[in-house]
Amino acid sequence: MSFIQEFKKFAVRGNVLDMAVGVIIGGAFGKIVTSMVNDIIMPVIGIITGKIDVSSLKFTIPSSIAGAEPVIVKYGQFLQNIINFLIICVCVFFMVKVINKLMKNEEAVKPAPKPTPEEILLKEIRDILKENKNK
């Protein structure tokens, strides 16, 4: 089997396509959450904390070498990324919860399948055999 045929067989499997769709939607969802955090949540937190922009929080460690640049530790950006992560986790949790609830509702709505003619016949035979055994 050639490399191209093998790759084609791999690429068109259902799981790979599902994963690709998930990655694309996840990337777009990540941008939405980042915008929500940067443009809505963080300004509100800034107002509550006295106009502090969390992403700009940092501390500077002076260099021990003369003329060298000081080391800047941007812990505020790290905090903002943690907030982004937590919001994404909460959103994914609620999405999975809603999807699971919808799946359970679909399963509950499905009526029991009608027995096939073979199953009906087998039940009749079983009942006749039970009657003959009890005589």
Rank of each mutant, 00 (worst) to 15 (best):
M1P: 09
I4A: 03
E6Q: 04
F7G: 00
K8R: 00
A11V: 11
V12H: 07
V12M: 05
R13M: 11
G14C: 05
L17K: 06
V21D: 06
G22R: 03
V23A: 13
I24V: 10
I24N: 12
I25V: 13
G27D: 12
G30I: 09
G30W: 05
I32S: 03
V33I: 14
V33C: 04
S35K: 13
V37H: 01
N38W: 03
D39M: 14
D39Q: 12
I40N: 13
I41P: 03
I41W: 00
M42T: 13
P43W: 04
P43D: 09
V44H: 02
I45Y: 05
I45Q: 02
I45V: 14
G46M: 03
I47G: 01
I47Q: 09
I47D: 08
I48H: 03
T49P: 03
G50K: 01
D53R: 15
S55Q: 08
S55M: 02
S56H: 05
L57G: 06
L57T: 08
F59R: 08
T60Q: 15
P62I: 04
P62C: 14
S64I: 11
A66V: 14
A66E: 14
E69L: 12
I72S: 05
V73E: 10
K74P: 06
Y75E: 05
Y75T: 00
G76P: 13
G76F: 08
Q77F: 05
Q77G: 15
Q80F: 04
N81I: 07
I83W: 01
N84S: 08
N84K: 09
F85D: 06
I88Q: 03
V90N: 01
V92Y: 02
F94L: 03
V96H: 09
K97N: 11
K97M: 09
K97R: 11
V98F: 09
I99R: 06
I99Y: 10
I99Q: 10
N100P: 02
N100H: 14
N100V: 08
K101R: 13
M103A: 15
M103P: 01
M103Q: 09
M103K: 15
K104C: 10
E106H: 04
E107T: 13
A108R: 14
V109S: 14
V109M: 15
K110S: 07
A112G: 03
P113W: 00
P115N: 00
T116P: 02
E119K: 07
I120E: 00
L122H: 09
K123N: 00
E124M: 15
E124H: 15
D127C: 04
L129C: 09
L129H: 12
N132M: 08
N134A: 15
N134C: 11
K135W: 11
K135N: 13
K135Y: 01
